[in-house]
Design a protein around this nucleic acid. Sequence first.
DNA 1: CGTCTTTGACCAGCGC
DNA 2: GCGCTGGTCAAAGACG
Length: 505
Amino acid sequence: MEKQHRRELTFLHSGDFLRQNSGVADRTLDDSSHHVKPHIKEMDFFSTQYQSHHHRESKTNGSSSLVDSCVNIGLNLLSSSPEVSRATNEEKPNAEESALKMELEKLNEENRRLRSTLDQITKNYNELKGQLFMALQKQAHRNQGEQDAVNGMPSTIMSVQQFMDPRPSALLDVNEPSGSDDKTRELENTMEVISKERDHRLIQSIPGKKVSVDDGSDQTSQSPKLDLDQSKNEDQASEVPFRKARVSVRARSEAPLISDGCQWRKYGQKMAKGNPCPRAYYRCTMAVGCPVRKQVQRCADDKSILITTYEGNHNHPLPPAATAMANTTSAAAAMLLSGSTKSKDGLPSSAYFPSLPYATSMATLSASAPFPTITLDLTQGPNAVPFLRPPPSTASFPLPLHGYPQLLGNPMFAPPKLPASPAMQLGQRPTSMAETVTAAIASDPNFTAALAAAISTIMGAPPRNNGNSSINNNENNNSSNGVPAPALTAPGSPQVQQSCNNKPG
DNA sequence: CGTCTTTGACCAGCGC
DNA sequence: GCGCTGGTCAAAGACG
């Protein structure tokens, strides 16, 4: 999150932004822009289109954008002045020097303002994050009592918590290798501690059950004792029924695979009973020993619907694109955890994700399945009738913003780890996908930056950008096929397989 | 040559 | 115990 803002600031301050405002050669910038710490390579994404776009934004948006314009103007003056100043330096050294000092002062002032804006945004984000987590905690705690009365449910909760542990540090670490805001770290630590305490409490609530905390990403943060042997851990986990929750994502797609930001290796394919289309099995190959598996299968009723089922937790940092999906599935698992999937009246727990406007989802918890499985239905429009599934005890709820299927897997859109827009948080739901996206873009500067970067990239920026670590990460996501991650599916992916034409195994 | 996919075989869980 | 089914393994082939 902070990274996003930081990146935004980088865009605003970077040298190319100056360059596009003046024909002055780079060398003039070298003299004048030391203090703004330009990230020139990132700015390679930005052309004058971004500038004009950005100026339009600044007319309609809040203070930060206004500040941006001010910064731009100031830097423009600064960047264009040195050549002149060199020519006139001998005549008016003092006046020029004082002018430069004034410009410097202005820039410092803008820097301070931007920093305070960033701090404010960060603070708001942290507050919202904390509130969300506390709400989840409260709901989970409240529902635990009910679920304890049901056979097997405690272990289900436990498993789900293992599965969906928010693990904000893992998510943020991906984007913030250079260190994050102290307050954010504090919050992350707090949340981690709370999560572990919660796990511990639930473990204790299951007498006679040996439960391993087998989440991969937990392993990185747990005590060495728990970090001993992953395979052993998995073995232990395999002894426990309901060791993992599964999140099944239904998305309408003609392509055979959802590109979710991770690297997957296919290790099997089977014909499932009652479905003419084969089920493919994939495991995550982004890290050795990553326990995450996924199954991909087309819906028997509607072959245009692709069902992707995720199981397990990654034991490695996720790239932004994968984080988007992870957030979505975690949110779904959180719904499962919260017990809303058991609600008899089928009322959604939309309080969790009031911002997730378009996707009508069905949460399905099947008691007969070996794992508790929640199904997110991304195939429905906001006005569509919810997809009904045979299993009992279903509830529908809106999906997180990260669940936009069109955005999943797209490196440029992957990292909207911002909280939803204020309007969305107030429960206003745009009536269409376009409105939703528009609202998201308008309210989220990171979206704006990402969109601008994407457009710039498409319009002729170098395909390889070595200056943006997050983009590199996402390139890595598709390193196996060497093509950029498509919006939702990977038609050209080598993972493509012919559906419904393989014999059973 | 390394990586990935394909696919038949194998294994475990479950119901009868 | 047997058969069915789901999930995984691993050898062979394809591909870049």
